[in-house]
């Protein structure tokens, strides 16, 4: 796996947690929300991540019967997931500006 895709996976995980902190979503809905945020990843890439987050008990999925549409699996954060999101936020904050600055400096030369 390239460094790029590993980095992307970690960031994507954080973004998924952030969305679920706001509301419960099902798979397709989540993909649409990521895209409207401008995070343009292959839609399928969310499913392996959802499986991993469930295994790590950061999120929990529940199949809800719906009277009209199909039954859907809705995901929400667990307490462990909330803590993990908090950690991601700290990491991101501490990296965001230094990395930006570093990359910009290089381009000026």
């Amino acid at each position: 796996m390239s460094i790029g895709s590993q980095l992307l996976k970690g960031v994507l995980e954080g973004c998924i947690l952030a969305i679920m902190a706001r509301e419960t979503v099902y798979g397709y809905e989540l993909a649409v929300k990521l895209q409207t945020q401008g995070i343009d990843v292959s839609e399928g890439s969310i499913y392996p991540i959802l499986l991993r987050l469930q295994k790590e008990e950061l999120i929990i999925g529940e199949i809800k019967k719906s009277p009209h549409g199909p039954n859907r699996k809705y995901y929400q954060l667990t307490d462990k997931g909330k803590k993990s999101l908090q950690a991601f936020r700290l990491h991101w904050e501490s990296l965001k500006y230094p990395v930006d600055r570093l990359l910009e400096e290089k381009e000026e030369k």
Binding site: Y26, G27, Y28, A31, E43, G44, Y47, L51, G61, I63, P70, R72, K73
Partner: peptide
């Protein structure tokens, strides 16, 4: 878990 993820993929594909 296997059947759940297969169902999710199917729903997603139908939406596409």
């Amino acid at each position: 878990e296997t059947e759940e993820i297969l169902m999710e993929l199917l729903d997603h594909l139908l939406s596409l």
